[in-house]
Design a protein around this nucleic acid. Sequence first.
DNA 1: CTGGCTGCAAATCTTTTGCATCCTG
DNA 2: CAGGATGCAAAAGATTTGCAGCCAG
Lengths: 137, 137
Amino acid sequence: MEKLKKTGMKQTPQRLAIMHHLEGNKCHPSAEDIYKSISPKFPSMSFATVYNTLENLKDHGLIKELTIESGKKRFDPDTSDHHHLICVKCKKIVDLPQEIQLQQKALTTAGVIKGFRILSTQINIYGLCPECTKTSS
Amino acid sequence: MEKLKKTGMKQTPQRLAIMHHLEGNKCHPSAEDIYKSISPKFPSMSFATVYNTLENLKDHGLIKELTIESGKKRFDPDTSDHHHLICVKCKKIVDLPQEIQLQQKALTTAGVIKGFRILSTQINIYGLCPECTKTSS
DNA sequence: CTGGCTGCAAATCTTTTGCATCCTG
DNA sequence: CAGGATGCAAAAGATTTGCAGCCAG
């Protein structure tokens, strides 16, 4: 977890626990998921710390905040350029291969048209996963 | 507002007011925005009705629910296939031209790879709008 | 030692729910 | 007239805030 040092953030046990929980995590957990996962080993930790830490990690580019479900933030330790496929029924979220993204040309067009300076893009594809396709037939 | 009839929904004054407020609206308002806009003319209306109505309209395909800002739902009366450009600073949301979307091929690939049955896609491009680019320089 | 971080609790904000009443079709 | 829709208020869920005390650097 030397990543923390690079950013100048203090290396507290709480942060290490959160970082450790996120490392390689493909579940795209919400703040509450993270809190619940860690509190057994860290009963004293508060929600505020989880939120603060996630906010800090995001600001330092160590994690991404996803806007997939209205009403709940989700976080992704994978900061590479990728997008998501979401099951509208069971809420499972899986990563899409990097090939699936907007063409640079489309991005340029979008920015030029509206005069925006583009910072990031998020593509959400909603559907039914294999399991839910079966059970909802 | 004969659109309501087609769906079989009852044509109440509240619904008409909400429909009317949304008609041609390009602001992508939240439930609260809608409530505030309408309550002066309709002081008796409750939040529950706004939410119920929006939910119903969505289920009948008359509006789309956007997931752009975590923590708040937004609604769009434009149900055509289009996406959004969002200013991260002033929160302005503008429509993107229809040309900007995923290729059918990408969608097919995405679904096939994970076995999903794709229902819809949402592309959010975040950045700084012209005004905010200036002031934040 | 000092400023940033934590823990706690209360507050805020958004959305949902239960239920009695109302009114459209 | 019946069943869906409304209004109200309370509840639920997620996130934010203020502040005193703590601890990593």
